[in-house]
């Protein structure tokens, strides 16, 4: 599906830390690459190191050794802020990934602030929008004028509000939800919002960490469809971490199977599901409780 160009890569990543009782090695000589427009699945049980890998890629944790490459250039040891220009993390607990006291619109604006892609001019119309927000909290009957206010350009040198609205609609949400706080959304809505936030930040790579495991099956299916649509339309590349091999198999182009910090098998989805070579992969497949 994806093009041949490698957008993100890791070479010989290692990470070790000590707890009181033992030494944990969540990453042992991990290599990976993500092509442009590809969805790469990383499957493993808890403790396999799959989440650590994502956090290392996002520079939220540092690897002990190894190299990280972005568009062919090394970015090992960069700040999360730098990595965030290209990639955004989608967390398992969507609610926890938003400041509980902030309205969605503010979280999204914060993410979009430095996005140069959505930027244009600086003719602020912040006042009109703020006014719209104020009205929205008062009553339900003011939705029309809010929408009108939203359509007015509001630019702060980042993703402007009309673009935010566009993105929110694109992930399948109504812009009214922008004036709610995280807890006032459903789990699925909140997870869509966090995808919207990543897009507002101009991310071309989404790092998804078990993003559907807290969701109901029907909601999960919708989020998965959304990711597929984003890959097609927005050309985002996706690293999809999950413990559910069936889900990963139905979504991803390629799959990496991890166990105890080691990548035990890697290959196209068809190959991993059809002719697994590794024992552990077979065990995972056998354990699936399918319909």
């Amino acid at each position: 599906m994806g093009s041949e160009e490698i957008i993100l890569g890791g070479i010989q990543l290692n990470k070790t830390y000590k707890t009181k009782e033992r030494i944990v090695r969540p990453l042992q000589n991990i290599d990976f690459c993500l092509h442009e427009g590809e969805i790469l699945g990383i499957v493993g049980e808890s403790g396999s190191g799959k989440s650590t890998l994502l956090r290392v890629i996002a520079c939220l944790e540092k690897a002990d050794s190894g190299k990280l490459l972005l568009h062919g250039r090394e970015y090992t040891g960069s700040s999360p802020s730098f990595a965030g220009r290209y990639m955004q993390m989608i967390f398992q607990d969507a609610y926890a990934s938003f400041d509980p006291r902030m309205k969605m619109i503010d979280s999204l604006r914060e993410a979009g602030r430095r996005n140069t892609r959505g930027a244009a001019g600086k003719n602020c119309d912040a006042a009109a929008l703020r006014e719209a927000g104020r009205r929205n909290t008062r009553g339900e009957n003011s939705k029309d004028c809010d929408a009108a206010a939203l359509r007015k350009p509001h630019r702060r040198g980042g993703t402007d509000d009309s673009r935010i609205t566009e993105i929110v609609r694109e992930v399948g949400l109504s812009e009214d939800l922008l004036w709610r706080r995280p807890r006032e959304l459903s789990g699925g809505q909140c997870q869509r919002m966090s995808i919207a936030r990543a897009l507002c930040g101009g991310a071309e790579i989404l790092l998804c960490d078990e993003i559907t495991s807290a969701l109901d099956v029907t909601t999960q299916a919708q989020v998965v469809q959304l990711l597929q649509r984003l890959r097609r339309k927005e050309k985002v590349s996706i690293l999809f971490v999950s413990h559910d091999l069936a889900l990963v198999g139905s979504l991803c182009d390629r799959i990496m199977v991890m166990k105890d910090g080691v990548c035990v098998e890697e290959g196209s989805s068809g190959k991993i599901l059809g002719q697994p070579e590794n024992e552990y992969t077979e065990l995972l497949l056998k354990s699936l409780i399918l319909l």
Partner: peptide, 26 residues
């Protein structure tokens, strides 16, 4: 280490702003 603080760091929010906007109110 809550995800929302990490999300803010990924979004390039400065430490001072993280302290003032996200940590202090919470």
């Amino acid at each position: 280490n809550e995800p929302y603080i990490e999300a803010a760091r990924l979004c390039g929010v400065s430490p001072v702003e993280i302290l003032g906007r996200h940590i202090l109110p919470n």
